[in-house]
């Protein structure tokens, strides 16, 4: 458990059609949530190469959130299924090399789920705060 003032670095890679729109809706509805996430927009979670996530962890990210459309709702039919398969695999890999797989999370937030987006962020931030800084975090290692 890290100290109270520790600000985790959490990367979110989110799809344009569902989760990014859901995050926009949370904003439009002025739903407040923790400010510890930085988001990168891609058109579809299917675009996410597992290497992006490994790169983020290598760079010292304390957590990575991948968020896309609900199953069956993908703007590109099935990109989210493929992303989910990759994330499952990646989580297994992370676990096997002794890295807490909880630092990687995949969620499904639709364009109408602004409130859910806020809940997801709260939950992700809490999870990462409970885990503390990433073992790969260079600042801590130094």
């Amino acid at each position: 458990m890290a100290d109270e003032n520790w600000k985790p670095k959490i990367l979110a890679i989110i799809c344009n059609w569902c989760s990014y729109a859901g995050a926009d809706l949370a904003g439009g509805s002025r739903i407040q949530y923790p400010p510890d996430i930085r988001a990168i927009r891609v058109m579809c979670t299917g675009r996410i190469d597992p290497l992006f996530i490994l790169k983020a962890f290598q760079d010292g990210a304390d957590g990575v959130l991948v968020s896309g459309c609900h199953f069956g709702d993908c703007h590109y039919l099935e990109g989210n299924y493929k992303a989910a398969k990759r994330m499952f695999l990646l989580k297994t890999v992370l676990k096997n090399i002794g890295f807490e797989d909880k630092r990687l999370r995949m969620t499904f937030v639709s364009a109408s789920e602004g409130a859910k987006w806020a809940t997801v962020i709260e939950d992700v931030v809490k999870t990462i705060k409970d885990l503390g800084p990433s073992p790969l975090n260079k600042e801590i290692a130094r």
């Binding site: 891609v42 058109m43 579809c44 299917g46 675009r47 190469d49 990109g79 493929k82 992303a83 990759r86």
Partner: peptide, 8 residues
């Protein structure tokens, strides 16, 4: 342009 190919 979904990029599912590029992700893999």
């Amino acid at each position: 342009g979904c990029g599912t190919c590029g992700g893999f």
